[in-house]
Design a protein around this nucleic acid. Sequence first.
RNA 1: GGAGAGAUGGCCGAGCUGGCUGAAGGCGCUCGCCUGCUAAGCGAGUAAUUGGGGAAACCUGGUUCGAGGGUUCGAAUCCCUCUCUCUCCGCCA
Length: 424
Amino acid sequence: MLEIKYVRQNLFEVRQMLENRNDSADLNAFEQADEKRREILAGLEALRHERNVVSDEIAGMKKNGDDATNRIIQMREVSAQIKSLEAEIAEFDEKTKDVLIRIPNMPHKSVPVGKDENDNPVLYEVGTPAEFDFTPQAHWTIGEKLGILDFERAAKIAGARFPLYLGAGALLERALINFMLQAHTTEHGYTEVLPPFMVNRNSMTNTGQLPKFEEDLFKLENRDYFLIPTAEVPVTNIHQQEILDEARLPVKYVAYTPCFRSEAGSYGKDTRGLIRQHQFNKVELVKFSHPDTSYDELEALLADAESILKKLELPYRVILLCTGDLGFSAAKTYDIEVWMPAQNKYREISSCSNFETFQARRAGIRFKGKGMKKTDFVHTLNGSGLAVGRTVAALLENCQQPDGSVVIPKALRPFMGGKERITN
RNA sequence: GGAGAGAUGGCCGAGCUGGCUGAAGGCGCUCGCCUGCUAAGCGAGUAAUUGGGGAAACCUGGUUCGAGGGUUCGAAUCCCUCUCUCUCCGCCA
């Protein structure tokens, strides 16, 4: 959420931002309701002041045994007025909040203006896609032939867009999770957490999934719980409504969780394979940073995520999301895209973002340090480190052999019980 | 599922026969004093949020004692609803 004062005083900039993001938040409704609200508030506060003063007077009179009946009668009227003004102001309050909570974050100055994903600049490429002297197979073909992925049976169990890993496939998924957690905890200084996989409405609102994107989420019936679409939600909410000690910053967490997404509106996209599933595993990095250093932290976060791909020797590139492709809550986002030989293109495998104070303001996550008179909002950041299912897909495709087997990258072998290759 | 207890400031914890309590006391923290160093000791200060005035120091209004509603001139304190936590019993991993 943007600060209400900021929106009030920078209507032009906010309007421009909405245009750059192709967003339709109703600023006019905000402007009107906000003005009306402030107008009423002035009168309301004066009346409240009167009530407070006279109530004290009445207390004094009663203490002295004086008759306070007149004042009490007079205050009855004031109280009634306060009550009606409060009802009135609540209406406009709700209207302003309703718009405010649907306004996306302001992009960082370094974010290029652009219409959609085609305008995302490629920053750099790492590694060279391997040359195959045979036609590389899609990962789902490789997986099914090796008997480690079974989408048909998964569909019987749950439906389309669910994975079923078997044997070495299940082991591979688990090994990758451990491998990533190991790297981030021991080499990059993150603290491992294992959070709830369902959260309440409030937590979803804090991180920005709600109220705008409810249709993307799985919700439990008859209970106000949602399945998490990313560990960002529970982990960022660890510190909601807290005031952190400045000396503790940055606070860094890494969490493995499954992620659940309805994928509403993506019918026909990536219908085969592990790329787009209703349920997938992800290792997520989350940081609570001092505002002054949050963009350094973003670079470091990106590097932490990249390091996994480097260790796995998978070719990838890094792109910068333009305004038209930027997520609702993010001020700046780097996507890491891994090379997929069968598709002959790069596919997103990680998304690393700085949310600045957008989520912190919604969630009430602040910090205070020595010499600070007031608290300040932290900057929250997060990034996939990495999406595990997509890593499996990339690994199967990039490491496939002419005979249909898959060679396991050296760095991963200790997590696979020493296994060097997946064969039939 | 049944029966109880509770939710107060960074933390612990009073208050809860309505007004002088934005909130005692302690811990922690900050500043000063003292001490050869450390520890101890002494003194002062220390909630958040939002509006107005001021260059600033600061002055000043409103709101906030889990959330929402009600009673009242006035509520942390009384009433109702909800959420969460804890204890005991039952059941179940």
